[in-house]
Amino acid sequence: MTQPTERADRILDAAGELMVRLGYRKVTMEDVARQAGVGKGTVYLHWRTKEQLFESLIQRAAMSLLSELAADLRRDPREIQPHRFMRSAYLITQRHPLLRALATADKELLGNLTNSPVRSREREISDRYNALIIKHGLVREDIPHLVYAMNATNTGFYAVGSIPHDAPDIDDETAADVLAHTVRHAFEPEGDPDPASLTSAANEIADLFDELTKTYRERIYAAPGTERG
């Protein structure tokens, strides 16, 4: 017998395939049910609206990103350093079409989901991360508007693919290496950071990611027919 979480994942997989192919606006709940091989009523049993369904799809993608980053931080606290953290996040994002769409605010694919609550949580995570790396001395203190400069640099690496330019195309690994090199030499101080500071910062961010992952999981796999907070 199919478990509710397995059925929910099958529906979400179908929704993701259709969204990548057609875009949010063109996909209907009937399309998702047909793709998943279930009745339309079964889809509505899990999600009462199309928006709720696709919010869960985005939350599942975010959950995957956060889980992988948290595991990296617990394995090696040096992954909290901006150049390593941004490199890892870039590569994970590039592997996932929905995460790529979120990173570039792709309205063609996401429609009005570009204003998803997940984006607000992303900003909260970014604010917490930036506060930690500043607190623990992992970035230079002499750069004006430091956070703005780092965000602009990071965002540019995601957005450049959609902007006409004369530079040769490079693969994701190379782009991630260039991003890491740029961040390391533009924003981080010389020398090796204090290991205790790295561990403290890495554990705090990993704990935050674990907390958010738990929240997303509870919302995505809420008992069929219940309200999602």
Rank of each mutant, 00 (worst) to 15 (best):
R25A: 14
A152I: 11
S126N: 05
R78K: 14
A167I: 08
L138D: 10
N154A: 11
L66P: 01
I92M: 10
K26I: 10
E51S: 07
R7C: 09
A33Y: 07
A159F: 02
D172T: 15
V178A: 00
L53N: 10
E68N: 11
D192L: 15
A159N: 10
R119I: 12
D31C: 03
D9R: 15
I11D: 08
I134A: 14
I92K: 12
P189N: 01
A71M: 07
S56L: 06
R100Y: 02
A152K: 07
K50T: 10
Y24T: 12
T5G: 00
T5D: 09
D172M: 12
L45G: 15
E227K: 13
L73K: 05
L198D: 04
I133W: 03
R128D: 10
A222T: 07
R219F: 00
I58V: 15
A61W: 01
S162P: 08
E79P: 07
L179E: 01
T215D: 12
T114G: 02
R228H: 04
R87E: 02
R184W: 00
T28W: 07
M19A: 05
Y148K: 13
F209L: 14
E218M: 11
A222K: 14
D127N: 15
T114H: 06
D171C: 06
T215Y: 05
H165K: 08
A36H: 09
T5E: 10
N115G: 09
A149H: 06
T199C: 00
D13C: 06
T153E: 04
P189I: 04
G191E: 12
